[in-house]
């Protein structure tokens, strides 16, 4: 896939079909990748595809000018479609280079299983459904289901549906909702008081760095409501109450746009399980409106569409 990606991108740049490309290159730390945004054909050989391509690169689309080639996993391509639906991105300005994705490795899970930090591991190798971690010369094997991100384990659309180039054969989806929503299920089982206490504690440690918002392609507002000062909806002071209100409103704002890419939770430096909120928004969009995000670029966005017969139920 990697070789084909490089040659496709090289050709697109040479033929003037794109002005720049957004992809992944090796990161500066072990087992990481980092976004590469470049118009320089010389950088193309740095492009990689591996089980560590965590970022949802579509977050860069709204800030990138010209015609853009973008490397997209299944969830990322749905984010692009959602951005097209919202008129934030013009379809003709993007060349979607689709990666059929069999899931991304959650290093936090690997660290927990291996009992070592990322930089103390010698190697992590994925072969099909097995992931082999070498620590201190010793090899440990784990099933992918223990090591991939929760959202990957529940992924219904691993292969981009919207693409210009698909780099490999489609991947058969094997979503396991139960495993993917384990954390969420434990929250559902809690009595409301306990759940309130849970979120109060989680949001007590939020520092309001806004990484969750800034890595989110669905958070495309030019001015976020938390930055309004007249009226001031929320204080920038990171008290748990303000933090919770920020995140609750953000979750509602991204409902119908969130593709469960999991970036908010991954980016959070203080480990708040944000995906439990956003995943629930995806579930609600599906249950209430039979709406799956980023599937149809011609469809109006969920909360922009309005049908009279729906209104009464909503208001009631």
């Amino acid at each position: 896939m990697e070789q084909r990606l490089r040659s496709e991108v090289k050709a697109l740049l040479e033929q003037g079909k794109i002005d720049r490309v957004i992809g992944f290159e090796p990161g500066s730390l072990k087992f990481t990748t980092t976004p590469l945004i470049t118009s320089d054909g010389g950088d193309v050989d740095h492009l990689v595809i591996n089980p560590f391509i965590v970022n949802n690169l579509s977050v860069y689309l709204t800030g990138t000018s010209g015609r853009v080639g973008i490397v997209a996993k299944g969830c990322d391509s749905r984010s692009i479609v959602s951005l097209i639906q919202d008129n934030k991105v013009l379809r003709e300005n993007v060349v979607i280079i689709g990666i059929p994705c069999s899931g991304v490795i959650d290093l936090t899970k690997v660290e927990r299983l291996a009992g070592k930090d990322r930089d103390e591991l010698d190697d992590i190798v994925r072969q099909g459904d097995k992931i082999t971690v070498t620590v201190g010369g010793e090899r440990k094997e784990f099933p992918a289901s223990e090591v991939l991100f929760d959202n990957c384990l529940g992924c219904e659309f691993p292969t981009p549906r919207e693409y210009d180039i698909l780099l490999d054969e489609p991947v058969t989806p094997t979503p396991d909702k139960a495993i993917s929503e384990q954390k969420l299920d434990s929250l559902r089982e809690m009595p409301p008081e306990q759940r309130w206490q849970f979120w109060k504690e989680e949001f007590s440690r939020c520092i309001r760095c806004y990484a969750c918002r800034n890595v989110c392609p669905a958070c495309f507002c030019e001015r976020c409501f938390v930055e309004e000062s007249e009226p001031q909806w929320v204080l920038p002071v990171p008290r748990w109450q303000d933090n919770l209100i920020f995140q609750v409103i953000r979750s509602i704002h991204v409902a119908g746009r969130c593709t469960d890419c999991g970036e908010c939770e991954r980016a959070c430096p203080v480990n708040i399980p944000l995906r439990s909120l956003t995943r629930e928004m995806c579930n609600l969009a599906e249950e209430l409106f039979n709406y799956k995000v980023g599937i149809d670029k011609e469809a109006p966005p969920l909360f922009v569409a309005y049908e009279l017969e729906e209104a009464e139920d909503l208001i009631r």
């Binding site: 590469l36 945004i37 470049t38 760095c209 806004y210 990484a211 918002r213 800034n214 890595v215 204080l235």
Partner: peptide, 28 residues
């Protein structure tokens, strides 16, 4: 521009920097 391209302008590197000291003042 090249080195900044991938930055998402969040506050992690500054908030969690042990030497960054900028603060905002707000009244409730």
């Amino acid at each position: 521009e090249k080195v900044a391209a991938k930055c998402v302008s969040c506050g992690i590197c500054t908030f969690l920097c042990p030497t960054c000291y900028c603060f905002d003042i707000n009244d409730e």
